[in-house]
Each structure stands twice: as structure tokens, then as C-alpha cells.
């Protein structure tokens, strides 16, 4: 902290969790730096660091842009409404579409959202607002969730095959099994993001609510949760984006690469866009590879459509403190 300021630090006046204190401290430091004269060496160092960070960002952006541009160029000849309405065809790939796969993906992702939002947010609220962090059991759960977020997706596929498709749940190779498997896969992401969002809500909000006589649940549900909603929705967006692109675990729990009838949630074969794209991209026929590229565009459209709902909600609830 700079000594030049005459006002006392906010973090000294208000009780706040360590994380917030760091954030507040950082904000103060940056603002002060803008208005005070800094020596040359510090300035150069700052520029270098900013440059490195910008380079990192541009690498990521270039990769994404390259992929999208490639998909549009390679799949351009097939981009039409047929792609959305026609059923798959290997015999006549120039007229093939992704209808069954799009429906399959929507079923699966719909199921994932229905499962992960209540489960993920519920778990995050419990761990963040009710659970005692000093409790060994809670710390064990905490550690497990963080580790689960790093488990390769194929492992969840094997889990889904053993416990959801067969075993205790015995659902068979149906879309519901795919939904459950992917929900398990992305649940840690939602829990971690939701916890972070809940933690970022200034504790003064919660404390104030409690001081006015609200119960803990009232304080959480009416004050903390709405305030954390934008962050939670960001977590859901990330989770859904990951789930929609998964092919490997779905291949294990029964997603097929060729189905010409519309899927249903609890019976019959289903397909998803990533499994179809994965399959077509490695075929020898050029027309199928073009179809795969066009499929990437279809998937992007679908992803943007699903996420735009969440983005709209997030912007609606976003406010500054």
C-alpha cells in the first residue's frame, strides 16, 4: 500500500473476507498508481507485462478465429437450411443434413441444464453459505469437487456406461443416459464457478440482511443469490459450452453416428453433433469432410443460441456495487 494517501483504506474500515480484501486493495493500488508519479523502471516493467498478457490473449483469439474462419471456408458450399432440416445420408452427402443430431444435442443439453442448475447452484450455496469450512468432511468434499473438475471426460463416459447405461440405473443407450453423464462431467465446473460468484458478493450484503432480522436462508435466497446470479450464469455458460462439444464420453454411453429418425429422450438411438462431426471428419470422401466443416458451423450456431439466453439473463441481473 502506498503511504501517500491521506484517507484510510476501505479494507481497514469494513470487515470483509480475505479475497475481497485483496481485490479492494488491488483496486486502490491501481487507482493510486494512475494519479501518482511512478519511476521509469516500474513503468517499463508494467508495459512489458501488459504486452505479454496481450500476446497471450491474442494467441487464444487467433486460434478461435482461425477455427471459425476455416469452418466457414471449408463448409461454405454446404451452408444452407438443408443442413438443419435434412437427415444424415452417406449415400448422398451433398444433400445430407444434421436434423437428428441437432435434435439429439438439444435433448442432451436441455437435460444437462435441467440437472446442473439446481444441483450445482444448490451444492455451491450449501458449501459457501451453510457448511462449516473447518469441518474435515466438508474440506474432503471441497477437495473432491476440485479434483473432479480435472478428471478426463472419457472417465465420465466409463462411469456413465457402468452406472447409468447399465448397473444401478440401467437406462440403456438412450439420450437420458447421455444427459446424466454429461451433467456429472460439468457439475464441478458449475459448483466451482457458483461458489466463486457467491464468494464475490460483498459480505456486507449478507451481514446487513441478517442484521435486519432475516434468517440465513432469507438472506441467501433474496440478497446473496440474486447478486451472484451473473457469475453463476457465466459458470453455466462455460459448463454448457463444454458439454455441447463432448464426443468421447457420448460414444461410450451410446451416441450413434448414423440415425435417421428423430430421437426421443428415454428410448431409441440418438446422435449428437460432435459425434457426427468426429465421424465425418476422418472419412476419406471429401464431400463428408466438407459436411463435417459445415457441422462445426451448425454447432457454433446452436451454441450461440443456447448461450445467448444465459447471456441475456446475466446482463439483466448484472449490477455494480
Amino acid at each position: 500500500m502506498s503511504d501517500s494517501s491521506d484517507k484510510p483504506n476501505l479494507s481497514d474500515r469494513v470487515a470483509m473476507p480475505a479475497r475481497t480484501r485483496v481485490a479492494v486493495g488491488g483496486a486502490r493500488e491501481v487507482t493510486e498508481a494512475m494519479f501518482s508519479s511512478v519511476d521509469r523502471a516500474k513503468k517499463i516493467r508494467g508495459t512489458i507485462i501488459a504486452g505479454v498478457l496481450l500476446l497471450g490473449l491474442s494467441v487464444a483469439l487467433i486460434a478461435v478465429t482461425a477455427m471459425v474462419v476455416w469452418a466457414f471456408i471449408a463448409g461454405w458450399s454446404r451452408l444452407s437450411i438443408n443442413l438443419f432440416t435434412n437427415v444424415p445420408s452417406v449415400v448422398n452427402p451433398d444433400n445430407a443434413g444434421y436434423r437428428t443430431a441437432i435434435l439429439g444435442t438439444l435433448y442432451i443439453i436441455g437435460g444437462v441444464i435441467v440437472l446442473i442448475v439446481p444441483l450445482g447452484v444448490g451444492a455451491a450455496i450449501y458449501l459457501e453459505q451453510f457448511a462449516n469450512p473447518a469441518n474435515r468432511f466438508n474440506r474432503f468434499i471441497d477437495l473432491n469437487i476440485q479434483n473432479l473438475a480435472g478428471v478426463p471426460s472419457i472417465v465420465f463416459g466409463i462411469l456413465g456406461l457402468a452406472f447409468i447405461v447399465r448397473g444401478p440405473l440401467d437406462l440403456g443407450f438412450v439420450a437420458a443416459a447421455g444427459s446424466l453423464t454429461l451433467a456429472l462431467l460439468v457439475l464441478p465446473t458449475v459448483i466451482l464457478a457458483s461458489r466463486e460468484a457467491l464468494r464475490a458478493v460483498p459480505s456486507s450484503i449478507r451481514d446487513g440482511s441478517l442484521a435486519l432480522g432475516a434468517t440465513v436462508w432469507q438472506a441467501v435466497s433474496r440478497q446473496v443469490l440474486p447478486a451472484a446470479l451473473p457469475g453463476i450464469l457465466t459458470g453455466v455458460i462455460l459448463a454448457v459450452s463444454r458439454a455441447i462439444g463432448e464426443a468421447a464420453p457420448l460414444l461410450l454411453v451410446g451416441a450413434v453416428t448414423f440415425v435417421t429418425f428423430n430421437p426421443s429422450f428415454f428410448e431409441g438411438g440418438y446422435s449428437t453433433l460432435p459425434t457426427m462431426i468426429y465421424s465425418y471428419a476422418s472419412r476419406p470422401q471429401e464431400s463428408l469432410q466438407t459436411l463435417a466443416a459445415a457441422g462445426v458451423v451448425v454447432m457454433l450456431v446452436l451454441l450461440i443460441m443456447i448461450n445467448s439466453v444465459a447471456i441475456y439473463l446475466r446482463n439483466r441481473f448484472e449490477r455494480t456495487w
Binding site: L251, T260, G269
Partner: peptide, 29 residues
């Protein structure tokens, strides 16, 4: 097999054109 799968997909598609009542699905694990 993913090597044989494409052939089975073609067979399924041609077969279903003649037998619309039969639903053939092909997976490649």
C-alpha cells in the same frame, strides 16, 4: 469398428429406403 462403420451406414441407408418400417442405427465405438 470405425473402418467398417461407414459401409454399414451405407447399407443401413439403402436398406431403410426400401424398408421404411425398420430403423437401423449405426455407432462406432
Amino acid at each position: 469398428s470405425s473402418t467398417v462403420g461407414p459401409a454399414t451406414e451405407i447399407a443401413a441407408e439403402l436398406f431403410m429406403a426400401q424398408n421404411p418400417g425398420v430403423a437401423v442405427t449405426v455407432a462406432v465405438s
